Computed example of a mutant assay.
Amino acid sequence: MSVAQTIADILNRQNVKATFFLANEKTSRGDFSLDDSWKSYWQDRVREGHHFGSHTYDHLYFVKDGPAGEIFAKPQFGPKAGVATLYNEASYCREIRRVDERFKELTGTSLQKIWRAPGGKTSPRSIRMGDQCSYQHIGWSPAGFLGDELSSQTHPNKMLLDKASSQLQDGDITMAHLGIWSRKDPWAPAVLEQLILNLKARGFCFATLPKRDK
């Protein structure tokens, strides 16, 4: 969340609506992104007309399918952080739905019925679990990986900006974060606004998820 407000300001300035996928992640302030301390931030984004989905409450990284219809996933936060844990359909659904319940407590608004797996790591079984829980999984396009998780030494901001500006195509879904702990050269202030301007110059407009039927 270190550049959360910066990103919100850029989106407002450029009149772009985004889709935020939320997990209860530790922030640079020492709190968590779904704590009451972030209530006004999320309320403001709702008022601005953005969309919201689940990123699983404790940021569950899929590990592998389990032996009897379950999956193994490793929470990044919460009481089982760092431990590969077995989830059946009900318990995995609970991790997806907990974000929805908490977001409604904070904002009075429900999520769209969409979710994104941390790291984009899934299996057909985990996707099916989300579907049976009434949440559609949404990933990103290959060109839409904007690279803010990568090392700034090997992937400087200019490289990421040039790549996304030239390679994104109509209908692509992009993905970036509200801050990355490990990146030394912050991505958002240097790249996001110029990327939006470059894409607008190519004739693109922007839309929230889920995609509307044509």
Rank of each mutant, 00 (worst) to 15 (best):
L60F: 04
I196G: 02
D162H: 13
Q132C: 11
G130I: 04
S33V: 02
K104D: 11
L34H: 11
G108K: 05
D31C: 07
L86F: 05
T85D: 03
I10W: 06
L199T: 03
Y135H: 07
R98H: 12
L199C: 07
P186D: 12
K184V: 08
K74G: 04
C133R: 00
L161C: 04
D36M: 14
R94Y: 07
G144E: 01
P79V: 04
S123K: 09
C93G: 15
T208P: 05
D213R: 11
R116Y: 01
I71K: 04
Y57R: 08
P118C: 05
Q167P: 04
F145A: 12
Q14D: 12
T107A: 01
K163P: 00
S37I: 05
E105D: 15
G130Y: 02
T56I: 03
F52D: 00
A18P: 02
V83D: 07
V191A: 06
T109G: 00
A81Y: 06
K163T: 12
R29S: 15
G144C: 05
S126W: 01
T109W: 04
P79I: 03
L209Q: 06
M175G: 02
M129Q: 05
N198M: 04
R125T: 09
D65S: 06
Y135L: 06
S2Q: 11
F145G: 08
A23P: 04
E70D: 15
Q194H: 11
F103T: 01
M159N: 14
I7K: 13
I138C: 07
K74M: 15
G78R: 07
F32P: 05
F204V: 02
P142S: 10
R202E: 06
H155L: 08
K74T: 13
